[in-house]
Design a protein around this nucleic acid. Structure first.
Lengths: 146, 146
DNA sequence: TTTGGTTAGTTGCATAACTAACTATATGCC
DNA sequence: GGCATATAGTTAGTTATGCAACTAACCAAA
């Protein structure tokens, strides 16, 4: 049973994710502005590798909420840019373990600063309580649908 | 001056829009399931045309928060599927006015039902007050960055 | 009326997404 | 061991996005 009914005008912004598109665009622009030449999607992969280096592609799929072909190509492109290296696992030769290069390790601090700046631009004028509630709602939405 | 500082773990979900990705995927899946053969991006264009038929491509850019090439191609594909027609404006021959076909008019009610269902799936377990706050926050984010 | 700037739309190129089909390796059961 | 099945990753085809460069039409000022 539906717990909410929406008037037609209310559907749209929720369904199309304008806010998250706007954040992604701004983040991309801010990367560019400080001379960081990676896409936001590549950043999302690096983000998880900074937390735990040597993840498999499948683990990156789960972490980034992307499918396998997407990760294959993101890793392809990151490899081209010499930011990661594929290493075949010795335990299970089906698996590639993805390792950061020194180059990529250097990007961590710099990109997190840019991400922080971007988020502050985005949330300017929003109170901390409402940010918390919004995060919570988005988490529930994700859990409901993933 | 930043009004919020984020711990590293808090950045990610906001920046990558997992929730909106999940909603878009589910909406796409639900369209497919009831035999509606359009992409969610095409739906977002039709959505505005149902409200106001005969918009120009530039107006669709503003309404859908997409750039001009994106709209050009979405309209290309919608035209291929015989859901819209480009009509050169008589007042200003640079402009294309985009008109819905009868086929597309029939889709309105059906897709809005699917969208409503999808949103109810997404927001299951979220209280109305929190939904309102979340919408408000996302609107501010959008306004801050657009 | 001509020139220069602006606006509407298109095209080309690179990256990314989803689906489906594929290869290769691993695993479990007989 | 051998076969069926599952898992990890790749490839191919279609759609979509962002950016930059382009054409065509409009408009305003000299």
């Amino acid at each position: 049973m539906p717990n909410n009914q929406f008037k037609r005008g209310e559907l749209y912004s929720f369904m199309t994710g304008k806010a998250s598109t706007a954040i992604a665009r701004r983040l991309q622009k801010n990367f560019k502005q400080v001379g960081i030449d990676i896409t936001v999607e590549q950043w999302s992969v690096l983000y998880h590798l900074w937390k735990q280096d040597g993840m498999s592609q499948q683990e990156l799929c789960n972490a980034t909420f992307r499918d396998k072909p997407s990760i294959t190509r993101l890793v392809d492109n990151l490899e081209k840019q010499k930011l990661v290296k594929r290493v075949a696992s010795k335990d299970d030769r089906r698996m590639n373990l993805i390792y950061l290069t020194d180059e990529a390790l250097k990007l961590e601090t710099q990109t997190l600063e840019v991400a922080n700046t971007t988020l502050n631009e985005a949330l300017d004028g929003v109170g901390p309580d409402n940010i918390a509630i919004c995060k919570e709602v988005l988490q529930i939405v994700y859990d409901n649908l993933k």
